[in-house]
Design a protein around this nucleic acid. Structure first.
Lengths: 218, 218
DNA sequence: AACGTTATTTATCATTCGATAAACTGTTGG
DNA sequence: CCAACAGTTTATCGAATGATAAATAACGTT
């Protein structure tokens, strides 16, 4: 009855570093789906190991969660995006289109979005840090580049900083794009399939808007 | 040692309906802050009663949570908003400005936003229902009204339905405004204080955009 | 092939969880 | 004032939780 007994997976034994890396990457999947309140036992079941083994690699559940945050948040930003956004040989609109396509490719993943939302609700520090990153690396930069392109400034140094109102307009655009990802991957609502087109429209509307709204204060 | 023994609050006793209403409204505060995974014991502590008393009013924790959802989601929509949005004696822009100010007054509360996000992550049905409501009562209507105002149609019936792309543009605007609330009340980031102005800019930019983007497909 | 090292499991503990039953106490009508 | 009802607490259950210690089993070295 046991011809080719489906070989009970022959308890494979990983090196400490392999196991650790495997734990973290699968813990990301698990916690993204189940939330950080889920038990270490069900996590261990998902990992295919026993629960006490987790404590050989992480002092506590909280420490494991912190590592999950670190891994998820860090290195999400591609270094060449900085160069892309400030490449003044290209129209700003083109740069932003390319950037937002790449950026949303990176963060519009169910895992990332869910962990981002969970961490936001928990109020953990790393979430604030990330919001600051968006502000400085993307939104403020948009206005610097916009001023240079429109001839209001020649260098980054002399470009006047974005006003709070301008920044808010950029946030509304950015948030609108971000919310597209939430609707698609978290709410699982039907959305316009053509993500590039959604981005193009958002950028069009935004860039057209800041040209006028910032000069016609009332 | 017990002179004026701080009068242990003289165990007040509420009627069944009062107690029930009190439980639900305070449970909203509690779960919004602590998340739905929090224990019934800490909830009871927050309510100032013992934990088994909860089970006198709700068969299970899940039933209590469902009532919390119901109470939070229902009646959030003010009936006169329908009339406001379709009042063709006023410019669409004015109507939208007034609507979004009132709408955001209603939902930009820490409690509501947090419970909305929690329920979204949980994938509960009521969340989908709410997304559908936004779609039908607000966004699709914007295009109907836009077509009537711009002379493309005379009645609601003959106005062509919004295309998926148009709807997506409206979602980006709506999501951008919504995300302002998230940033302010969940992330507790600094935002532009002048909410009306943020709305005005979002609407300006959006209405200017749909006039052009929808006619110049490439 | 025997050894020692280390990854992994088994067994277990103290707490906390949702939930129930029974005891108690405030309130109301006669 | 007292009896009956309804609101509330005390006591407790079995299951699940995070965490630890001891036992086991796979691997590399000689």
């Amino acid at each position: 009855m046991n011809e080719t007994v489906k070989a009970q997976p022959k308890k494979k034994r990983l090196s400490s570093s392999e196991r650790r890396a495997d734990f973290i990457s699968k813990a990301i999947e698990f916690f993204a789906e189940e939330g950080f309140e889920s038990s270490t036992r069900s996590l261990a079941r998902y990992l295919g190991v026993t629960q006490p083994l987790l404590y050989r690699y992480f002092p506590s559940k909280d420490d494991l969660i912190k590592e999950v945050y670190q891994t998820v948040y860090l290195n999400r930003w591609q270094d060449d995006w900085d160069a892309l956004l400030t490449d003044r040989s290209r129209p700003l609109r083109d740069r932003l289109q390319e950037f937002y396509e790449a950026y949303t490719d990176a963060i519009f993943a169910r895992e990332w979005l869910r962990i981002f939302l969970f961490s936001g609700l928990k109020g953990v520090e790393i979430n604030r840090w990330y919001v600051g990153l968006v502000n400085e690396r993307i939104l403020e930069r948009i206005f610097t580049e916009y001023r240079i392109e429109s001839g209001q400034a020649n260098t980054q140094a002399e470009a006047p900083a974005a006003t709070p109102e301008e920044l808010e307009m950029a946030w509304v655009m950015h948030g609108g794009i971000f919310y597209y990802g939430i609707r698609k991957h978290i709410y699982e609502s039907p959305v316009l399939e053509d993500k590039s087109r959604m981005i193009a429209n958002a950028l069009d509307v935004f860039l057209k808007g800041i040209g006028e709204a910032t000069s016609s204060q009332n």
